[in-house]
Amino acid sequence: MKNLLAIAAFLVFVGFLVILVVHVPRLDLIAVIGATVVLAGWDLVLNLRNQRNQRD
């Protein structure tokens, strides 16, 4: 259940940032948002992987 909630929160976060990029299409903003999504996605993957390893 926690994994599903974390994935849903990440998707809502990405959705908000996509709306921002659509309304303010600046290259520097797109670069910062891209880096933010990559870092947040990497953190999500590491946390999901860590939770799975702790259950074993």
Rank of each mutant, 00 (worst) to 15 (best):
L4I: 07
R49A: 12
Q51L: 11
L46P: 00
G15W: 06
L29F: 13
V18W: 08
V18P: 00
L5E: 10
V22C: 05
I33N: 03
I19V: 12
N3C: 03
V18R: 11
L29Y: 12
N50P: 00
A35W: 08
L44F: 01
K2N: 05
V38I: 15
V38L: 15
N47G: 08
Q51Y: 05
H23V: 12
L46Y: 02
V24L: 14
N50W: 06
T36L: 15
I30L: 12
G34N: 09
F16P: 00
L17G: 01
M1F: 01
D56W: 06
A35C: 11
L29K: 04
G41S: 05
F16Q: 10
I19Q: 07
N47P: 00
R55T: 09
L27F: 14
L11E: 06
V37T: 08
Q51H: 05
L4P: 00
R26F: 13
H23Y: 11
V21F: 07
D28R: 06
R49T: 05
W42V: 13
L11A: 14
D43C: 03
D28M: 07
A9E: 10
V14C: 08
M1T: 02
R26D: 13
R55P: 00
V18I: 14
F10E: 00
N3Q: 09
N53S: 13
F13Y: 13
F13R: 00
F13M: 10
W42M: 10
A31V: 14
R26Y: 14
D56M: 11
A6R: 03
F10D: 01
V14D: 01
G15H: 04
L17V: 02
R52G: 01
Q54M: 12
L48A: 01
A35P: 01
R26C: 05
Q54C: 02
V37W: 03
D56Y: 07
A6L: 11
V24K: 09
V37H: 02
L20F: 07
V24H: 14
F16L: 15
R26K: 12
L20T: 11
L48G: 04
N3K: 07
H23Q: 11
N50I: 03
A35M: 15
I7E: 03
A40D: 01
L17Y: 07
L44N: 00
L4T: 06
W42E: 02
A31D: 06
N3G: 10
G34L: 08
L29T: 11
L44G: 01
V45K: 08
A40H: 02
R55L: 12
V12N: 03
I30K: 02
V24D: 08
V38N: 02
T36D: 13
V32S: 09
G34W: 07
G41T: 03
D43Y: 05
D56G: 15
A35K: 05
A9P: 00
V14F: 04
V12H: 02
V45P: 00
Q51D: 14
A6Y: 02
Q54E: 14
L27I: 14
L5W: 02
R49E: 05
N47H: 07
G41R: 04
G15R: 04
G34Q: 09
L11K: 03
R55K: 12
N53E: 13
